[in-house]
């Protein structure tokens, strides 16, 4: 079982690094925001997996709140790009 967690965690970490590449390189601002969006979803999945690894039910709430905050952040950045503050 432990090997399984290591493999899954490794895949998620690889995905995070690849998305971060676009975040640093992206030519325009929306490109960076897309990469940020993908990274926040990957991190949500990672938090749910940590809840399973440490057997703590409360970490699932953390993942839920994290995904809500990520969604609000992306939408407010989009509103800002559209109209200015």
């Amino acid at each position: 079982m432990e090997t399984f967690y290591y493999i899954i965690g490794g895949i998620l970490l690889l995905a995070l690094v690849i998305a971060a590449f676009r975040f640093f390189q992206g030519p325009t601002a929306p490109d960076r925001v897309i990469a940020l969006d993908a990274m926040s979803i990957i991190l949500t999945a990672g938090l749910v997996m940590l809840a399973l690894v440490f057997q703590r039910f409360i970490y699932i709430d953390v993942a839920l709140i994290y995904s809500i905050l990520g969604f609000m952040g992306i939408v407010s950045i989009a509103r800002w790009m559209e109209k200015g503050i």
């Binding site: 325009t28 929306p30 925001v33 897309i34 969006d37 979803i41 949500t44 839920l64 995904s67 809500i68 969604f71 992306i74 939408v75 950045i77 989009a78 509103r79 790009m81 559209e82």
Partner: peptide, 17 residues
Amino acid sequence: FIALSNPISSHALARAA
């Protein structure tokens, strides 16, 4: 929640871009 919120944020971002 993810199935509902993820398309909305990408839609907002596409229109803003």
